[in-house]
């Protein structure tokens, strides 16, 4: 298992390298002039040229990528050009490894930008994850146990309705009624968990519900299908034939088997969300990674885009490895190697 993990980590790192190269080339494939956004609206041609040079955008893409890679590995000093550094020593900035570069839009190191926003996105993703897993699995099991009856139809039908609504619609609906019209919960805002857990929870509840509703709909249906499939397995009949009660048959024998696909799916879904929930963050004005990535793309902020892409990719790759390792823990038949 150790050797397997090492192998997966090495493949993951190689994948990240490839992804960063692809991001660089895709960025330039769109024939943009990123220096224009960095320079500002009243930029003269001379200023534009200086900006371009100081940001290193004048160099070939592979050289830019090489500098970026060097920054990640051993750190960098900005600006890259030694002449510019000599001309304006007061602007020289050190960026220690792993250096993701310097955001042109925010004039700040990419790493610290992401580090600032990450707790917001993590909080949101994990709160939503807990809600949708608890709700989705519980409702899915309920629907399966009442298969074909009114309760089953109600759950499946409502989940379909919830699934059909766009995220922003559910978000705005909750915001308008729960917060503004009825005043049940104050307007959502992010408070760090370490600062005030109660404010964290109340500020997080509406966006988390919004995000959870969409995912929950899918998980209800998936759980229901897995439970029904498992309940028709021979070993469930064996469990009943032993004289076990329904609670043990469902809670132990059935759920244990349903766990495997649920862990796989939810692990990857959670990983995708940790990298930012773009729409939900926009609707509730949460300064998370999702919102950051929208800004980065709007401002043609190459270093920030690359940084976010690599962040999301890393999370997904790590989640994949964890899911596969968990898989071996859950299912004794799986042997890693």
């Amino acid at each position: 298992m150790f050797a397997y993990t090492i192998r997966r980590v090495i493949t993951g790192i190689l994948l990240l390298v490839v992804m960063s190269v692809v991001t660089f080339y895709l960025f330039y494939a769109s024939s943009t002039t990123p220096e224009r956004y960095a320079c500002g609206p009243k930029c003269t041609a001379a200023q534009l040229e200086t900006t371009k040079k100081s940001l290193g955008y004048d160099e070939p893409t592979y050289v830019q990528w090489g500098k970026f890679a060097k920054g990640v590995a051993v750190g960098r000093t900005f600006p890259d050009d030694p002449e510019l550094r000599k001309a304006a020593p007061q602007l020289v900035q050190e960026c220690p490894a792993p250096c993701l570069g310097f955001s042109t839009g925010y004039s700040a190191p990419v790493r610290s930008l992401i580090q600032d926003k990450l707790p917001v996105s993590f909080s949101l993703a994990i709160a939503a994850f807990v809600l949708w897993m608890v709700g989705g699995v519980a409702l899915g099991i309920t629907a399966a146990l009442f298969k074909g009856r009114l309760l089953d139809r109600a759950i499946v039908g409502l989940s379909l309705v919830a699934f059909a609504f766009p995220t922003f619609f559910i978000g705005l609906l909750l915001l308008k009624f729960v917060s503004i019209r009825w005043g049940l919960i104050k307007l959502p805002a992010y408070t760090p968990l370490t600062e005030n857990p109660w404010l964290w929870a109340t500020g997080m509840i509406l966006p988390a519900i919004t995000l959870a509703v969409v995912y929950m709909a899918g998980y209800i249906r998936i759980t229901r299908a897995f439970v029904l499939e498992t309940m028709s397995e021979d070993y469930i009949r064996t469990a009943r034939a032993k004289g076990l009660n329904q609670r043990t048959v469902i809670g132990k024998h059935t759920l244990r088997a349903v766990l495997t696909p649920l862990v796989t799916l939810s692990g990857l879904d959670l990983a995708g969300l940790l990298g930012g929930a773009i729409i939900t963050e926009q609707v509730f004005n949460f300064n998370g990674v999702g919102k950051l990535s929208v800004t980065a793309i709007q401002r043609f902020d190459l270093p920030l885009i690359v940084g976010i892409v690599l962040l999301v990719a890393t999370i997904v790759i790590v989640a994949n490895i964890i899911v596969d390792l968990l898989y071996a823990v859950i299912d004794p038949r799986v042997r890693l190697g």
């Binding site: 021979d234 064996t238 009943r240 009660n245 024998h253 088997a257 299912d331 004794p332 038949r333």
Partner: peptide, 22 residues
């Protein structure tokens, strides 16, 4: 349920699928 498995027990065909894999 009290009878099942105690007074009357069943041996199923295809024990690979009749035994819980986990």
């Amino acid at each position: 349920r009290a009878l099942r498995g105690r007074d009357v027990a069943m041996i199923f065909q295809d024990p690979l699928s009749a035994l819980h894999p986990y």
